[in-house]
Amino acid sequence: MSAPAKKAADAPAPAGPPRRNLLAAMAAGGFGLVAGIMAIVPGGWAFISPLLKKRDTAVRWIRVAMLDAVPADGLPHRFPIIEERVDAWNRYPPEPVGAVYLTRTGATPSPQCFTADCPHLGCSVDFKSDQNEYKCPCHASGFALDGHVLFGPSPRPLDSLSVELRNGNEIWVRFEKFRSGIAEKIAQ
């Protein structure tokens, strides 16, 4: 180590005029703050991208089954929702993406339709034919044939979906997912 350098290190810090110190402090703070923000922005921006993305709110009508495939016995029958699906960079050919229950009686031509997602926390409900009840296997909510809550923690009845009969015997369902855990039925 050279002698002058050592001398400089040992010397007391030069005390400049207070005004200049304040300016330097403000500038240091300012640059530091901006630098810090700029360091966070690229990551933060991408991280919150799911919030910025416009939600796909297009109404989707899906052909679920032929009318004949639903026995007119007044009991719910489970059918898969087959749909093309995009998951980030993957586009899937039509495949099951969810399920609905269709119930048909002799009285009305058009079946009643409930989504199989439990309104409580989104588990998949199961219709128990021996008990004539829908039951959720997770937190044990029970629903009647008309969807109303019989027991358990579900805050609202099963979510019904709109049904249309097209071309005479094709059952089309307006497939939607609803927010779980709340009393109102609000589309996701």
């Binding site: 199989a116 296997p137 937190h139």
Partner: peptide, 23 residues
């Protein structure tokens, strides 16, 4: 499989108390 009901869904044992609490 999002389309396949899973009736055996339970959290890991150390979260079971919360699970039960929710009921």
């Amino acid at each position: 499989d999002s389309a396949e009901a899973y009736a055996a869904a339970r959290p890991e044992w150390y979260f079971l108390f919360l699970f039960q609490f929710l009921k």
